[in-house]
Design a protein around this nucleic acid. Structure first.
Length: 226
DNA sequence: CCAGACGTTGTT
DNA sequence: GTCTGG
DNA sequence: CCAGACGTTGTT
DNA sequence: GTCTGG
C-alpha cells in the first residue's frame, strides 16, 4: 500500500528532472506527506502544470466527502471495475509526484517498523494516480479536487516489508499514463517497478506522527538495508 | 422494483 | 452514476 | 499510513 | 473494533 510519501526536493530540481511545466508558487519540501494533505500532481500532459490535489479520492457522486479518507489507494487489479474508481480511470488520470515512499512492516509484537523506499538513482518519479472533482449540491464554495494512488503487488525489494506497493511510472513512460486511452495499454502500465531500481532502509518511528515533517523522517535508523 | 453501498489493508 | 442484494 | 476519538445532556 | 482526520 502507500500511506505516506516524500517530495523533499526543490521545486526547480523537480521541474528539471521530470521536464514539468509551471510549478506552484507555494512549494515546500515534504518528508512526511499524509492522506488528506495536498500532493503535487499533473493532470494535463500538454501544459505539464503541477498543482496541488487533496490526497483521498472523493467520487463525484459521494454524499459525504469523508469517504476520501478510505480511498487513498486503488488496486490496479480492479481499478477499471470498481464504482469508486472506474470513471476516474477512464477520464481522470494524473501523475502524483514523489521522491520516496514509506511502508510499514508488521511485527509480531506491538507496533510496526517503518521503511523508506526511493529510487537508487535518487531521482524523483511519478505515481500512477486518479483524480476527481466533487462539490456538494448546495455549497459550491466547498468544492474538492482529490486524488488516489494506484497500488500493485510488491516487488522483491518491498515484499519483505509489505505485500503491496504504489505503481511507479518511469520517466520514459509517465506521460503515456495521461495520453493513452485504451484500457489494455493503461492496465499494462500498472506493474511493479523492477526491484533493483529501488533502495530501502529502516527509519525511525518519527514518521508515524504526521506532525513530524523533517529530514529525520527519511533518515536511516541504522546502516542496515531492508 | 427500491435501498444502500460504492475502498484498501491486514487480521482472523 | 452504477451495481448488488433483497 | 498512524493517532485519536468514539456520546448525551445541559450549562457556561 | 471502527471511523475520521492529518
Amino acid at each position: 500500500m502507500c500511506g505516506r510519501f516524500s517530495m523533499a526536493i526543490d521545486s526547480d530540481d523537480l521541474q528539471t528532472a521530470l521536464a514539468l511545466g509551471q510549478m506552484p508558487d507555494d512549494w515546500k519540501r515534504r518528508y512526511n506527506i499524509a492522506p488528506s494533505q495536498p500532493v503535487a500532481a499533473v493532470r494535463d500532459p500538454e501544459t505539464k502544470r503541477v498543482e496541488w490535489l487533496q490526497w483521498g479520492l472523493v467520487p463525484f457522486w459521494a454524499k459525504d466527502p469523508a469517504i476520501g479518507s478510505r480511498l487513498i489507494n486503488a488496486r490496479s487489479e480492479s481499478v477499471f471495475e470498481k464504482p469508486s474508481f472506474k470513471y476516474a480511470f477512464r477520464k481522470r488520470r494524473c501523475l502524483i509526484l514523489a521522491d520516496g515512499f514509506y511502508e510499514w512492516q508488521k511485527t509480531s509484537g506491538k507496533g510496526s517498523r517503518p521503511f523508506y523506499f526511493s529510487m537508487r538513482s535518487g531521482e524523483p518519479f511519478a505515481f500512477a494516480g486518479l483524480w476527481e472533482f466533487w462539490q456538494p449540491k448546495d455549497q459550491p464554495g466547498e468544492a474538492l479536487t482529490t486524488c488516489t494512488i494506484i497500488t500493485t503487488a510488491a516487488n522483491e525489494s518491498v515484499a519483505p516489508v509489505h505485500e503491496r506497493m504504489p505503481v511507479i511510472l518511469r520517466k520514459e513512460t509517465m506521460w503515456d499514463w495521461l495520453n493513452e486511452s485504451g484500457e489494455t495499454a493503461l492496465l499494462s502500465m500498472l506493474q511493479p517497478i523492477p526491484a533493483d531500481w529501488l533502495r530501502a532502509w529502516e527509519v525511525s518511528r518519527a514518521v508515524n506522527d504526521v506532525r513530524q515533517d523533517g529530514p529525520e523522517c527519511a533518515e536511516p535508523v541504522s546502516n542496515s538495508p531492508a
